[in-house]
Simulated scan of single mutants.
Amino acid sequence: MTRSRRSGFTLIELLVVIAIIAILIALLLPAVQQAREAARRTQCRNNLKQLGLAIHNYHDNYGCIPIADVNGSSTPISAHARLLPGMDQAPLFNLVNFNVPYNHVNNDPVRVIQVPAFLCPSNTDGLPSTLGGRNNYYWNAGNGIVMYDSGLTGQPAANGVIYHTRKIAFRDVTDGLSNTAAMAEKMTGDGSNGVSSPRTDTFQPGTYPTTPDEALQQCNAMDPADLSKQGYSNVGAPWLQQYHSTNQYNHVLPPNGRSCMYPPGRISTTANSQHTGGVHMLLCDGSVRFISENLDLKIWRSLGSVAGSEVLGEF
């Protein structure tokens, strides 16, 4: 009598198959994550292109880059709000009350809305939803340490594309539209001055720099773990507010570096992102470039001025 044999896996064979599957998953997972990040970077780049088109559309209609604050308010409506019609957001634009501050109750319905094109999909978010819609795309305020027009003796006025009450036209960008930054990425904050997040917090060293180089040295010299140096953690919200930590940055410290604020009215917030190695930047001509975090600081600063007559190298 012939006895039939059962076919099947031995325990050892099963363990080998499981180990092989685990190895394949371990090999594939980074590739999947890289593919997803590549898609997110592409979307982030497209968001900036859309903003660039909206800026040019606004300039065609009004002869200037969007102005941040017509009335010189201390709580101004952002220049982002003026781009909304050029981004297929006319209904939202019509809800903005430009006659009252951004945090007035009349603007609450707008303040809490998240505009998808203002948010990089790679960004991680730690902000409370009560702040309002978040923003990752900041206006270039120049390569100086003054937040707006100078009220500080001996300090030059801000020289970027955005001011409180000054209208900057493309004809004023004498350095060339392709050599001058309009916007760049910036990550949102952790929402708490009780937590130190060196990449996203705006720190307050308590010093009084008089030059960009001094601002760089003093910002990098402080200890970010010292919670008494916390300046601003609600970075990136609401997009409806025009402020150095909600939608404007400076070309003082390098991209992906630390950000600092100094009393009175001195600032050196910088661009940063979750993307490895650098940040996306929108130039005034509407093109988008990925800027290395290792870019020569002189070139980075030159990209920040509208009329500095600097000679740029490769970037």
Rank of each mutant, 00 (worst) to 15 (best):
Asp125Met: 12
Val112Met: 14
Gln114Pro: 12
Gln114Lys: 07
Gly133Met: 03
Leu84Ile: 03
Gly142Trp: 03
Gly63Met: 07
Leu53Met: 06
Pro116Gln: 12
Asn46Glu: 15
Val96Leu: 00
Arg45Gly: 08
Asn94Met: 06
Leu131Val: 02
Lys49Phe: 15
Val32Gly: 05
Asn46Lys: 12
Pro101Gly: 02
Asn106Pro: 03
Pro76Ala: 04
Arg111Met: 01
Gly133Thr: 05
Asn107Glu: 04
Ser129Phe: 10
Leu84Arg: 05
Ser122Asp: 10
Val96Met: 04
Tyr58Pro: 07
Arg45Tyr: 09
Asp69Thr: 08
Ser74Arg: 02
Asp60Lys: 12
Leu92Ser: 07
Ala68Asp: 08
Thr75Tyr: 15
Pro109Gln: 13
Cys44Tyr: 07
Cys44Asn: 12
Gly126Ala: 09
Asn97Pro: 03
Lys49Gly: 03
Arg40Leu: 01
Gly52Phe: 09
Val115Phe: 02
Ile65Trp: 08
Ala117Leu: 10
His59Gln: 15
Gly86Phe: 02
Pro101Phe: 03
Gly72Leu: 14
Leu95Lys: 08
Arg45Asn: 06
Ser73Asp: 13
Asn123Glu: 11
Pro30Leu: 03
Tyr102Met: 03
Leu27Cys: 00
Gly63Pro: 13
Val96Asn: 09
Asn99Tyr: 09
Asn99Ser: 06
Ala141Met: 03
Gln33Ile: 04
Leu84Glu: 01
Asn94Ile: 06
Gln33Trp: 00
Trp139Thr: 04
Pro66Asn: 09
Asn71Trp: 11
Gly133Arg: 02
Asn107Gln: 07
Cys64Met: 06
Arg134Gly: 11
Ala38Asn: 15
Arg36Ala: 07
Gln50Glu: 07
Pro91Thr: 02
Tyr58Phe: 02
Gly86Tyr: 05
Ser78His: 01
Val70Phe: 14
Ala26Met: 09
Pro121Glu: 11
Leu92Pro: 04
Cys120Asp: 08
Val70Cys: 01
Val105Gln: 15
Asn135Pro: 14
Arg134Pro: 11
Gly144Pro: 05
Asp69Glu: 05
Gln114Cys: 14
Ala90Gly: 04
Pro101Tyr: 01
Asn123Ala: 12
Glu37Val: 00
Ser73Trp: 13
Ala26Cys: 04
Cys120Leu: 13
His56Trp: 14
Ala68Gln: 00
Thr130Pro: 04
Ile67Phe: 00
Ile55Cys: 06
Asp88Ser: 10
Val115Glu: 07
Val70Met: 11
Gly63Glu: 15
Val70Leu: 14
Val112His: 13
Gly72Phe: 09
Asn136Met: 08
Leu28Cys: 06
Pro128Glu: 08
Leu53Arg: 09
Ala141Asn: 13
Ile67Asp: 05
Gly144Met: 03
Arg36Gln: 05
Pro116Cys: 09
Val96Cys: 02
Asp108Gln: 10
Pro85Arg: 02
Leu92Trp: 08
His59Asn: 10
Val32Lys: 02
